[in-house]
Nucleic acid binder design. Structure first.
Lengths: 200, 200
DNA sequence: ATCTGGTTTAACCATTTAGTTAAACCATTT
DNA sequence: AAATGGTTTAACTAAATGGTTAAACCAGAT
């Protein structure tokens, strides 16, 4: 592992867990097992180092949408792919959503640049909905609300982990983990039923 | 307005917007129009002042659950009351959810104390569900998943405001505001349909 | 008027923290 | 083996920041 990769890995760990303002360059240096001055040698400033971690994080969060839309033949497919992908991702990177959301909240201007050129294929998704509505296989629903509903139900449970674990599961870590495991088999039917897909 | 209230109002504004780590005592003093030393005269430390704002914030977020459960005769009532209450609250305090979530994430031990003694009436809610399931008016669903689904769809849209506004509405503030206004009339039917309540 | 005691301020202190510098290190080339 | 040049370090600087202190302020009591 090169020094640069070492630094990035350490920065990722610290930044994602504590955020830009909660992180210290010294802590990142310690985590990487190097001198603090080396951080500045490889990445001029804290801001520059942070940008890299943040952009990388945001990019990991978005392409799932694109892929899910492209793979889908109908809205039902999309719901399945999308929820499955996202739940898979947060299992591996549970801190990512809160990190990205918090930093965007701190400086909303950062999205603009990164999202520019991403150009998600919402028109295709819209036509999938239109087709299914016309066929009478789902009830009419606004694309934006459907998207937000799904993303909410997938991401919020990890963003609010501490409070959910405390309020609903008496701070029992295992019960919370089980709960997360169940999400896939709960959220998919929940959404499908909500948009009026006939289930057996 | 007393000096103490002045400080609390300023601290609320700054802390809720920038979080504990992002806030400076000087900024709070400026916001309150007083000397920085006065903050320490009234509230010994940043930590103490913050605790007060945070506890107050968390308490504003929870009682809605209690009230909604107590007022409801069936799960359908609950869904209506709960969603309506929360959407009303975030209209007035849109920064609160992100603030509370972020600070809990930073130091999860804080919940434990505050939630202790809150004792939400989940057993009553469970019996409401059981009754409606037995009567065949709704499909079986786990209380915890239903709760999380609803809270997710209500709170996430404000937590993720910047990203939703950018990705879905081309950063058009008004379109986002309209979207939020529509949530009530979208989310309530969405949930009711999802749990199998017959709608006309 | 002046004494008293809570309130407010300006000036200060100690620590933390991002960032710099100059020297040391070390592999590769000559 | 001496020179070269990228890499790493220890020591340092400047600014920011939470917190303290001693004096000034000021309303109400004496």
């Amino acid at each position: 592992m090169t020094t640069e990769e070492l630094i990035l890995a350490a920065a990722r760990k610290v930044f994602v867990q504590k955020g830009m303002e909660g992180s210290r360059m010294q802590e990142i240096a310690d985590e990487a097992g190097i001198n603090k001055a080396l951080l500045h040698y490889y990445f001029r400033s804290k801001e520059k180092l942070f940008e890299q971690i943040f952009a990388e994080g945001l990019k990991q969060l978005l392409p799932k949408v694109q892929l899910s839309i492209e793979k889908s033949e109908g809205i039902c497919d999309f719901v399945n792919f999308f929820i499955e992908y996202y739940l898979e991702m947060i299992k591996e990177l549970p801190y990512l959503p809160h990190f990205v959301l918090h930093e965007i909240h701190r400086d909303p201007s950062k999205i603009v640049e990164i999202i520019k050129g991403q150009g998600l294929p919402f028109t295709r998704l819209q036509s999938l909905i239109d087709k299914d509505v016309a066929a009478g296989s789902i009830k009419p629903i606004q694309l934006e609300h459907l998207m937000v509903n799904i993303v909410s139900m997938v991401l919020f449970p990890v963003i609010a982990k501490p409070i959910i674990q405390a309020v609903l599961f008496g701070n029992n870590e295992i019960k919370y983990a089980t709960f997360l495991e169940e999400r896939k088999s709960v959220v998919i039917p929940f959404v499908l039923q909500a948009i009026g897909v006939k289930t057996n």
